[in-house]
């Protein structure tokens, strides 16, 4: 990350990471407000696992432990991963995902600065492929007035897998707004009929739209303090809006509004916190624009026509693979050479 010549802010890695973590707080706070404190448990679990595996890997690789451990990059991976999996996920799921992200996606590729893929998104992909059933147990927001588990009951489910007598998982969890949209469209309902269901709010999913707004606020803070450049988030959201807009105008009974796409799933946290990982995104402005537009297009295609409800993670990973190529073609021409290629 420090090797990149395009970040000129004279702040150290750990300062930047600390501010990124800080910028996640509004979203997390709204998460707790709407869905309860279970998410804090998974964030804590992920953080402990990330720090432990990071330390072990640094030791195995004969790297100094303390300076690397205190750069907060492992913590950021842990938080992003924890925020993308259901809060009621069993403890081992969080541990396996985080450990995979740090050990395989980060250190086997050479550690911070050398990893080709965003570690948090690799962790997410591994989990959704390996444990699809557990990855669908999302909490119902308080406001819907359904049966709710108190904190002790949530802890008991996370650590022992036991629910209070008489309750089934179906009663206390629900599919995500994007998932519900997909399955109901599959059953032949129209967008407006689906949007009338109680799980939807003003823009997208009840509760989750506000969490997305929280991440957007944190993201804007990063944008204005110049920790991230505008290219990635704005081009990503702009492209997503444009593509979703075209489909929506063309056929509003089958395609939801662009705002729904903005405030559903991982679009907001992805635009400001995931795509902007400096290690796994292109270095030039032009490269960033191509990268973000491609990610937005893929997100939309996977969400609407693919097999998974959300496409942010896979879009990020697929575009991560393209970064070396994008960098190759967007690097400024070297003086005295006929073209920029070597």
């Amino acid at each position: 990350m420090l090797s990149s010549p395009f970040i000129t802010t004279p702040t150290s890695v750990n300062q930047i990471m600390l501010r990124v973590l800080l910028a996640l707080i509004p979203g997390i706070a709204l998460y707790v407000w709407y869905f309860g404190p279970a998410i804090l448990v998974s964030i804590t679990l992920a953080s402990i696992t990330a720090l432990a595996t990071e330390a072990v890997m640094l030791k195995l690789r004969d790297r100094p432990i303390k300076p690397f451990l205190s750069d907060h990059s492992a913590l950021l991976t842990a938080w992003l991963l924890a925020l993308s999996i259901p809060p009621l996920a069993p403890w081992w799921l969080v541990v396996v995902g985080t450990a995979f992200a740090i050990v395989v996606a980060k250190h086997l590729y050479g550690g911070l600065g050398s990893n080709a893929f965003n570690p948090a998104m690799i962790g997410y992909a591994v989990l959704i492929i390996s444990f699809p059933a557990h990855m669908t147990h999302w909490l119902t927001p308080h406001a819907l007035g359904g049966i709710e588990l108190d904190f002790a009951q949530q802890l008991s489910y996370i650590f022992h897998g036991t629910l209070p007598a008489g309750l089934t998982l179906d009663a206390v969890t629900m599919a995500t707004p994007l998932d519900t949209l997909k399955t109901q469209l599959h059953l032949g309902l129209s967008v407006s009929e689906i949007r009338d269901m109680p799980i939807y709010g003003r823009l997208a999913g009840h509760g989750s739209e506000m969490v997305a707004l929280g991440f957007a606020i944190g993201g804007l803070y990063l944008l204005f303090t110049r920790i991230i450049s505008w290219h990635l988030p704005l081009v990503y959201l702009g492209t997503l809006f444009a593509v979703a807009g075209i489909f929506h105008v063309f056929d509003p009974t089958h395609y939801v509004t662009p705002l729904f796409h903005w405030f559903s799933g991982a679009a907001m946290i992805g635009a400001f916190f995931i795509l902007t990982d400096p290690v796994t995104s292109p270095t030039t402005a032009k490269g960033k624009i191509i990268f973000a537009a491609g990610a937005a297009l893929l997100t939309y295609l996977i969400r609407v026509f693919g097999g998974f409800p959300d496409g942010m993670a896979f879009a990020t990973i697929l575009m991560n693979i393209c970064v070396p190529l994008i960098d190759l073609y967007t690097q400024p021409k070297v003086f005295g050479k006929k073209d920029g290629l070597l």
Binding site: P132, A133, T136, H137, T168, L169, D170, T173, A175, T183, H186
Partner: peptide, 15 residues
């Protein structure tokens, strides 16, 4: 059961 019938299904996989 989710659609009001008699057949069980697993949470998260009804289709």
């Amino acid at each position: 059961k989710k659609d009001g019938g008699q057949f069980e299904h697993m949470a998260g996989a009804t289709i």
